[in-house]
């Protein structure tokens, strides 16, 4: 029950804010209880979230960036629609224990639990979006920080295999409203993927058909 609460909470948090300044300084967060209770309060009020997103894939060795954009939709309890629109079209829908993907040439439906890789990926990506990853102490060690404007939660996978793929995950929240402003996934070799959420709308009417396939 408590887990569901945090999941709902986090969704709610995704209501948008401007991107954080890369230069801002963070210090250790003294009172994490205040932060977590702030999240809970916000979550209780949210049933749907809509947001645009900008994804930046940074390949450090090659000094290359790949920018993609799209639209994100969430509807309680567990429906996610993640749609890339530029510069390529790609759709991911997670609903009823299934993961659906569609590109220009192919459509696929996966039973999430039947495929280990998808199960892991879904647990991780879904966990970041929903926020339940913050409570997954068995899989991740967490560090809470703050700046003048933001909270920053750093997650480090405890599992060696997971760490080969992801060194750290940084989730940033706006202090004013506890909304998630960005998620940064840092890979081995310092490559990272950063997703900024912008133009967020809460509790709009998102029909269930948006999550069917």
């Amino acid at each position: 029950m408590k887990r569901t609460k945090y999941i709902a909470l986090f969704y709610l948090l995704l209501w948008f804010v401007p991107t954080a300044n890369a230069q801002e300084k963070f210090v250790q967060l003294a009172d994490t209880r205040n932060f977590m209770s702030g999240l809970e309060k916000m979550s209780a009020l949210t049933n749907t979230i809509e947001s645009d997103f900008v994804q930046e894939k940074n390949l450090s060795v090659l000094a290359e960036k790949i920018i993609s954009k799209g639209h994100f939709r969430f509807r309680r309890e567990n429906n996610i629609r993640w749609e890339y629109t530029q510069p390529y079209k790609y759709l991911i829908i997670i609903s009823n224990g299934q993961l659906y993907t569609r590109d220009e040439r192919n459509r696929k439906v996966y039973d999430i639990e039947s495929n280990r890789m998808f199960s892991e990926m879904n647990r991780f990506i879904g966990g970041c979006i929903r926020g339940d990853i913050l409570k997954d102490e068995e899989q991740y060690s967490t560090e809470f920080m703050e700046s003048a404007d933001h909270y920053l939660v750093k997650l480090v996978p405890r599992n060696d295999k997971m760490r080969q793929m992801l060194n750290e995950v940084h989730i940033m929240f706006d202090k004013k409203d506890f909304s998630v402003t960005s998620i940064r996934m840092v890979e081995s070799g310092e490559d990272y993927t950063k997703i900024d959420f912008v133009n967020k709308k809460l509790n709009t009417d998102i029909p269930l058909e948006k999550f069917s396939f």
Partner: peptide
């Protein structure tokens, strides 16, 4: 040559 998923996973 790098192959990454649409969601950015290498």
């Amino acid at each position: 040559i790098l192959f990454i998923t649409e969601t950015g996973i290498k």
